[in-house]
Nucleic acid binder design. Sequence first.
DNA 1: TATAAATTTTGACAAGCGACAAATTACTGT
DNA 2: ACAGTAATTTGTCGCTTGTCAAAATTTATA
Lengths: 224, 224
Amino acid sequence: MSANIGALAVGDGKGKSERTRDALLAAGIRLFSEQGYDATSTRQVEALAGVQRNLMTYHFGGKEDFWKACMVALNGRMGALLEPVFDQSKDIEPRERVRFLIRRYVRASAAVPEVARILFDEGRSSGWRLEWLVDNYIRSFFDTIAQVFKEGRQSNAIPDIPLINFYYFLAASGAMFSMSAEFKLLTGKDAFEDAMVDAQANAIADLLTAHTHTTVKAADAAND
Amino acid sequence: MSANIGALAVGDGKGKSERTRDALLAAGIRLFSEQGYDATSTRQVEALAGVQRNLMTYHFGGKEDFWKACMVALNGRMGALLEPVFDQSKDIEPRERVRFLIRRYVRASAAVPEVARILFDEGRSSGWRLEWLVDNYIRSFFDTIAQVFKEGRQSNAIPDIPLINFYYFLAASGAMFSMSAEFKLLTGKDAFEDAMVDAQANAIADLLTAHTHTTVKAADAAND
DNA sequence: TATAAATTTTGACAAGCGACAAATTACTGT
DNA sequence: ACAGTAATTTGTCGCTTGTCAAAATTTATA
């Protein structure tokens, strides 16, 4: 792990106080997403940010509020990538529009893998962090996906599977980037390479917009 | 959290020492999978197991070796579900065989959600735990999936996507069960209900054995 | 039953944790 | 330059962490 993330996270035209806050947020996002909340200590965050001990408490009030601030900042990164997408897609015909949205979402998941890491992490057990995430971000994201799904079904662009399964399939499409360390050990390649990201985006779009065979259900039952 | 997991994990015909070990392993699997390695303390495991402090160190030597023992036990649970599957499927015709294997794998992921939780957790950043998992289990699992994929492609049962992406879809198909707490908050339902597990198994099988349109690639490029 | 081994229990330690308080330095507006 | 405030720095607190050590107890063997 690099000794100091401050220099990377710093904007030049900002005051020292704001630079401290930004460095802390960048370090917090990285450590919370890599290690989880409980396993990340305030001293560790401050060390990675290259700032003095106790500055997190001063600027953010405490570990809990700091985590929420990290989530807001992280949502900002993701939102900046996803917000223009709906506008860009509004003139595309239904089937290609769904594929376009899916590909852009997968690319955003690769560009900001911290989001998927934290969702996989916090979604496992209930608590105040999961409740906060659901209330502030996850619920509205699910509603957005539900709208895309509805339109995709009406135009027959999306196969006949339940919304819930469609949602979790899409949400899990970031697993390849979330598990980038395993990916490297297993394949020897970098999951964030452009060609790899495109391959994943295309594959997800292919699978989620393919027509399914309608004759297999009976055969399934015979083997169960 | 229940105060004591020992009574559940105990076999009756076993000696006290073995019962202590089993209770510790059951508690360890649960806590490591829910909270991760660093966030789980030895005292917490011992308390959930309903045994005295320091018995983990005595029976397993230390936290690291105890974690490995938990992984071995967890692999045993998963293996017991997956081992008979290949034998059962060897007379099914290729396309239905792939669907059968996928559905059984998804159901096993639901029956033992701890596996997916730990893989999502440890796959994020490199270290001795990820290396150990890859060397002992993940690599051979990947090879098995690669073999299924190869046969599935030859019989045209699996759509034309790269192996790596196929593998990570399948691995990520357990995300719905791994994130069961989020699932409950988001949908109000229990992800482990039989009907829900079957729906996911069928949906994954449908998506991974559907034929894709071959005419969309050019249209994709037009929007990028 | 006597003896040794295995297992359980209790005690203690250095190190790290989040948080609070106070002292010091840097910045702001007048 | 000055006062007032913001920001940084240092010190400390009670608590938990993983681990080692030793005493007490239970189990196995002769």
